[in-house]
Simulated assay, not measured.
Amino acid sequence: MKTAVIGGTGFVGARLVERLRSAGHETTSHGRSTGVDLLTGAGLPDALRAVDVVVLTIDAPSFDAAASPFFRTTSRNLLDEAGRAGVGHVVLLSIVGIDRVPGVDYYTAKILQEDLIRSGPIPSSVVRATQFMEFVEPIMSWTSDGDVVRLPTTRLQPIAVDDVVGTLVDVATGTPVDGIVDVAGPEVFPLDELGRITLRARGDERTVVVDESAGLFAAVPETAIIAPPGARIGAVHYADWLAGGPAAS
């Protein structure tokens, strides 16, 4: 079986490529830096030649309303070329809870991407993950001001990216589910408390102040983006990740 990872040079994609290759799967890595541009379709015919499974881990260039036309065009280009190439399975990385947060442009765009992939002519699987542990500190930076970090009480269920990659490997090397697989971390935290835990672990003396209007997650209902019943649960706990895990890069 040959797998192509579109977005294979990115944060998740590069780890997925490495894991698949380590398990003995023939895997190719593609992105704009390798000459594959989903927005224009450039490089896709060569990237998908003789490929059995495509895993899509790309992100939109922005989190605003421009994400919807980006995902519409890139999904259609992928499906058109994958159909011509005889690809048998498309796997999409998405986000837990996006169907429960209608007021966020990026989540609306991801729903559009999911719908296009799932309604397309190729058997598909959608893997929805909760917020990555690696992104908690970048999230805090959005609303940091001097000695204060302002965060809402929105509940998060952070997951280590390696646990997400493990689920992607299982799904990509299995039979298409023609539906959604949810994966989440083992613990749920209010975001403000997650911020305090993180600062303590880093020896950072800044103060977390509850602000329900602060940042992207202010628009998210309190429990909307935690895992639904039946989700796969990752093995890594946040405290253990903090003890040895780097921030996202």
Score class of each variant (00 low, 15 high):
residue 133 M to L: 14
residue 141 S to M: 15
residue 44 L to V: 11
residue 74 T to A: 01
residue 90 V to M: 09
residue 42 A to Y: 01
residue 77 N to D: 06
residue 135 F to P: 00
residue 109 A to M: 04
residue 80 D to T: 15
residue 122 I to F: 10
residue 136 V to A: 10
residue 50 A to K: 13
residue 128 R to S: 06
residue 50 A to W: 10
residue 120 G to W: 04
residue 52 D to E: 14
residue 123 P to Y: 07
residue 114 E to W: 07
residue 33 S to D: 10
residue 50 A to H: 15
residue 125 S to G: 08
residue 138 P to L: 09
residue 114 E to S: 07
residue 35 G to D: 07
residue 97 G to H: 08
residue 89 H to P: 02
residue 76 R to Q: 14
residue 108 T to F: 00
residue 80 D to N: 12
residue 123 P to D: 13
residue 71 F to M: 06
residue 119 S to W: 00
residue 82 A to S: 14
residue 103 G to P: 05
residue 95 I to S: 13
residue 51 V to Y: 07
residue 120 G to V: 11
residue 105 D to E: 14
residue 46 D to A: 15
residue 48 L to Y: 03
residue 84 R to S: 13
residue 70 F to V: 02
residue 64 D to I: 06
residue 52 D to P: 05
residue 58 I to A: 03
residue 82 A to R: 04
residue 94 S to V: 12
residue 60 A to Y: 00
residue 84 R to M: 06
residue 97 G to K: 05
residue 58 I to E: 00
residue 77 N to E: 01
residue 90 V to G: 02
residue 99 D to N: 14
residue 116 L to V: 10
residue 118 R to V: 12
residue 45 P to H: 02
residue 76 R to L: 14
residue 115 D to L: 12
residue 81 E to M: 11
residue 140 M to Y: 08
residue 81 E to P: 03
residue 83 G to E: 07
residue 98 I to Q: 02
residue 47 A to E: 02
residue 85 A to M: 11
residue 132 F to V: 10
residue 123 P to F: 12
residue 36 V to E: 03
residue 53 V to M: 04
residue 55 V to S: 04
residue 44 L to R: 04
residue 65 A to V: 09
residue 126 V to C: 09
residue 108 T to I: 14
residue 75 S to L: 02
residue 141 S to F: 14
residue 104 V to D: 07
residue 108 T to Y: 01
residue 52 D to L: 01
residue 123 P to S: 10
residue 36 V to H: 01
residue 72 R to A: 11
residue 40 T to L: 10
residue 44 L to T: 01
residue 132 F to W: 13
residue 55 V to Q: 04
residue 103 G to A: 12
residue 47 A to M: 10
residue 128 R to L: 02
residue 52 D to I: 00
residue 69 P to W: 08
residue 52 D to W: 04
residue 113 Q to G: 03
